[in-house]
Each structure stands twice: as structure tokens, then as C-alpha cells.
Amino acid sequence: MDPNLSPLLFFVFALAIFLGVELIAKVPSQLHTPLMSGSNAISGITIVGAILAVAVEGSAMARILGFLAVIFATINVFGGYAVTDRMLGMFKTKASGGPK
């Protein structure tokens, strides 16, 4: 890796942490569960790293590890988003009426 890149990456990391705190700071308690499962789905972003590990060239072992990582990360992504959507679909106000 280009050594000049590392400070920049930490810069990005530090700002993202602060941004995350600011974005979530005032969440009402009603949304705690969907927020948690929604952000849990986002943590499935590691799928990007998993995909990159499944390369044509190189060791078979790395490919297998990457393949397993893709499976687990995809469960996290699909399951997380679907479950969050299902939950949020149940949350409604009086105005919007009963279940569809």
C-alpha cells in the first residue's frame, strides 16, 4: 500500500465515526430495534471484502475462505434488510390505518 494513503484512511475513519454519532444521536426509543437491525445489515458491507477475496488467480484456500465469507455476509445483508423492512412495515400511526 502507498504509505501516503494510511493517514488519509484514518482521517476518513475518524470522520465517519463522528458522522455516525451525529446521525444517530437523537433516535427515539421506538426505533431502537429497527435501527439496530438496519445498521446490522449495513455491517454486512464486509461482503465487498469477501467478493474481492474470491479471485481467479492465487491460492484455492483464499478462494474457499472468500466464498464462505460471501455466504455469511450475504445472509447478514439480505436477512438484515428484509427483517428490518418487515418490522418497519408494522409500525404505523393512527392516520395510516390498520394492516394492509
Binding site: V12, A16, M36, S39, G49
Partner: peptide, 14 residues
């Protein structure tokens, strides 16, 4: 990965 991971890390801590 760094940005999304950090966002989740921060929201979990909150």
C-alpha cells in the same frame, strides 16, 4: 468498508 463499518460501530456504541 471503512465508512460503513465506522457508521455501524458508532451507532452501536450510542
Amino acid at each position: 468498508l471503512i465508512v460503513a463499518g465506522a457508521l455501524v460501530g458508532a451507532s452501536g456504541l450510542i
